[in-house]
Design a protein around this nucleic acid. Sequence first.
DNA 1: CACTGTGGCCGTGGTC
DNA 2: GACCACGGCCAC
Length: 778
Amino acid sequence: MNEKAFLIDVDLFKETIRLILKSEKGRVFRLFDKNFKPYFYFKGEIENLKERGVFEKTEKLLGFNKIDVWKVFFKNPQELKRERSFFESKGTVFEADIPFIYRYLIDKKLTPTGMVEVEYEGNEVKEIKTIEDETAFNPNILCFDIETYNEKGTSNPSKDPCLMISYAGRVKGKKIEGVLTYKNFKKDFVTVFENEKQMIEGFAELLKKNKIDIIAGYYSDVFDLPYLAERSKVLGVKTPFGRDKSKIKLSKGVKKTAKITGRVHVDVFKVISFLNAIGSVKLHRLTLENASTELVGFKKKMIIKKNIFELWNETDDTLVEYCLDDSKACLELLDFVMPLEVELSKISGTLLFDASRNAASNFVESILMRESFEKNTLIPPIPKDESFKERYSNPIQGAFVKMPNPGIYENIAVLDFKSLYPSIIISYNIDPSTLNLECEDFFISPQGHKFCKTKKGLIPTALENLVNARNKFKKEMKKFELETFEYKSLFARQWALKIIANAVYGYMVYPRSRFYCRECGESITAIARKSISEAMSLAEKNGFTVLYVDTDSLFLKFNQGEESKVEEFRKLVNKTLPEKMELELEDFYERGIFVSKKQGVAGAKKKYALINKKGVVKIRGFELVRRDWSKIARETQRKVLETLLKKGDLNEAVAEVKRTIKLLKEEKAELQDLEIHSTITKSLKNYEVLSPEVSAALKAEKKGLKIEPGSSVGFIITKKGKSISEKAELSEFAKDYDADYYINNQVLPAVLKILGELGIKKEDLLNDSKQKTFGDWN
DNA sequence: CACTGTGGCCGTGGTC
DNA sequence: GACCACGGCCAC
């Protein structure tokens, strides 16, 4: 048999590679590749080792040097693992730390979630290869959410029942949605079972009947699936969730994941946190409500979590409606991230299950491992703990940031180097293998590290492929309308490529990297510092004032109406740069504000506000972009900044602040506007100082709430207590607020930094009497 | 295991 | 009151 199919998943079944495939017509089938055996490379004498494996002589590259090695095959991954240390005592072992499934994907050059052509007999693979095919991957998808009984605060899966399971998805392109429960809700989307056990079995049946390929939840790795797994165990649920009749498989260890064989489980929360961490999306809180509102404009029904058990005992339909909305919100988010995840999986060669849980480093690592295989180069090992510690304790010097002079300026041009670090890596061929290589022609970095020019390194090659592909897709993208399928899929491709390309530099200096190269990292940043400072000097020579510089961007003050001179300068810089490096114009701004640091008169770095000719405001670093400031302080600061930038009206700005202070004083402010957000990053007992958020969290734990490391809390400074920490209470428990704190520690510091530049004093803002006139500042 | 890097600001609580 | 460490979040 010969068939074209999507490679949905690969796993191990009794030590054999098992492939889950979906044909173009939608038939899902599994195949085994029994002929593929695990192996590693060995450099050393094998005279006394003949019994310990199957040996094959082969040639590999170590950097650019050819070496003869033995390829040693084993019956299964366990045997390889057992034998590894023995071989290590007899010589050098290479590539023994590559997971078997990835060994298979790399060697067969397979791209998960992409199309393959497979020849098979019975259920055994004869031959398999990746093929280029533009057919869209249309899996059957289902998002789900559960509600659990929680009379004692947090639900306990060994005692508290699961009350309902909602779902929303698409099967063969058709929408499905509903709620499974065992109480007599009268809504038409509800299916009522006799009891909890039958409800869970009904859900498993639903997955089977609809041939679900992708199952998704929000926080489902940590909450929903472990909960269902435990309830299934307690109740003796027989119906399997997996396509091979298996149960939900939970990972041990710290990083919790839940697997369902034959279906790819995506925890949308993990995807959203990843996108938030790398700055692809910007969310203040990662809750389902916030993510769905901010990212896809879906406002779901809200209830207070602690009241779920009360709602269950009510007679109305609030709880089922709420539960269904959670699944619908999850589906909206899944639709938003799925095209990207599919591309990340295809481009990096990682399974969709892994891709949706990966950090940026995993994508880069996977690409570089595949590139190594392509070039017949040995893949470096994951560093041992000592070398990790050594690397970790020796950070490299980073970027240059110029201190601005505080003040308000007009006519500002912002220029920046396009993809600075990637373009340096490619232009200067920066790679561990080109470093200090015997070579005719080389480039010497500012620190004196030599990089060969003539032999192209692995990382520059892989990076250039990524950059070229991205440029190609970006170009093609412009041919299509925004809402078309083509546009969306090209957008996802270039987005995935951008994410990976941007992480390559970081991966080279990441202490746990296989391809770590300190000299490479410090050369890249040194070249970057040199490039920007040369551009600065040239700017000054050409009559511009350099207002500010950060890493790759240049803020120039130019004379009214002389935009063309900026353009001339830009071209002049580009002439001095290597081909792949480019200084671009970001925008011209009419006005901009820089402020001084809190302490002293020095200008604050990484804090500025700009307004362009269309009136679009760009604000960086100010309190108003920080989630650990209250909304009332942030919004007041925003109004002050925008009033100054747009209208130049100081009196209006002052009046705005006075209004806010009055509101606070009269205690008419909304508590939700006073909430301060912060992340509890570690176990509460491990904190050395009792900060307000930790203090509030500790008090909440005494009231029965559980606060896990990594969770975000919102707190309010109340009236009760002496220190700020004593006054801090989580929002759900706060009844009042300390007006003085919000005036003196939130609103005033936020606005005074800006208004202070214009001569306004604290007293001018606090003084309730008739307002002085400050006059226009420009 | 932990989840790309360095540069930077600043509130809070602690020390003296 | 001066000073500093801790810790969080942000710019790039």
